[in-house]
């Protein structure tokens, strides 16, 4: 079984290397004619479903295949490898063409590695516990909740300007303190970016759920995820081009709606 799939890959390789020949990515990938993409070990819901990126299920897996297709690689030419989060943001040679595991683009990281254009801007999401779960996912329904947020983030102006809750929000020093206040039942709801909210509701805060998410353009300076590449990787131009095309065609937004709104069941609050 293993041999046959290997042989089929070799065949596919020879078939598509000709196809990729005239394309932007030709000669720039780790293995000619193949696109090697790394993800986390393990990779999590809803970024990669069931820890199997090969299925193309999950937001990042779907984006990876869409970008690969846009760059002229067939689905069979996408090779998945695993890397730890910290190992990949260190400087040095990489064993992947690009790495997707919710890397936020920061200037510090950008000094030692390269990032593609962002494929995702993390929107603010509403995490609720207890009473908060009964609230309606509308701006009006959110006003009556007792709110908390991290005092040093842009969640604060969003709370005071957009939601305008009836009672003064409680503010904390970091996510851990907000979590503690939720567990103590001192607040009903808190604003986090969606990836953080997904993690907190799945792992950290028992009995919590995500009521909804705001459109990404509502947050000022949102956390943006980029594909991580070795510093100076010539492939970056091709990946950016592909991402731009996917953004323009609306394909990227569709993938996001499918995996981060429909699958997670986190509706958009407008």
């Amino acid at each position: 079984m293993k041999t046959t799939s290997f042989i089929s890959i070799v065949f596919a390789l020879s078939a598509t290397s000709a196809l990729a020949g005239g394309h932007c990515a030709a000669g720039k990938t780790l293995t000619e004619g193949k696109l090697t993409i790394a993800t986390g070990n393990p990779a999590y819901y809803p970024w990669v479903m069931d820890d199997s990126p090969e299925s193309g299920e999950g937001f990042e897996a779907a984006v990876a295949y869409a970008v690969a297709a846009e760059m002229g690689f067939a689905a069979d030419d996408v090779v998945w490898v695993r890397s730890s989060f910290d190992e990949a943001i260190q400087p040095g040679a990489k064993n992947f063409d690009m790495n997707m595991q919710q890397y936020s683009i920061t200037p510090e990281r950008d000094e030692v590695v390269d990032f593609s254009a962002p494929y995702y801007s993390a929107p603010m999401a509403v995490l609720v516990v207890g009473e908060g779960k009964n609230a309606e996912a509308t701006l009006e329904g959110l006003k009556g909740l007792l709110w908390g947020a991290v005092g040093t983030t842009t969640a604060v102006p969003m709370l005071t300007d957009l939601i305008q809750p009836d009672s003064d929000p409680l503010l904390y020093g970091d996510n851990a303190d907000v979590t503690a206040a939720m567990q103590a039942g001192q607040i009903d709801a808190a604003l986090f970016d969606l990836p953080t909210a997904l993690f907190l509701s799945a792992v950290m805060i028992e009995g919590s759920s995500i009521l909804g998410q705001f459109p990404a353009d509502r947050s000022d300076n949102p956390d943006q995820f980029g594909m991580l590449m070795e510093d100076g990787n010539p492939l970056k131009a091709c990946v950016d081009e592909a991402l731009a095309a996917l953004t323009d065609s609306g394909a990227l937004a569709e993938i996001e709606a499918k995996w981060l709104q429909d699958t997670t069941g986190v509706p958009l609050i407008d």
Partner: peptide
């Protein structure tokens, strides 16, 4: 302020 109240320091 560490546990929520928005007093002057926060």
């Amino acid at each position: 302020s560490f546990i929520g109240p928005v007093e002057i320091f926060r």
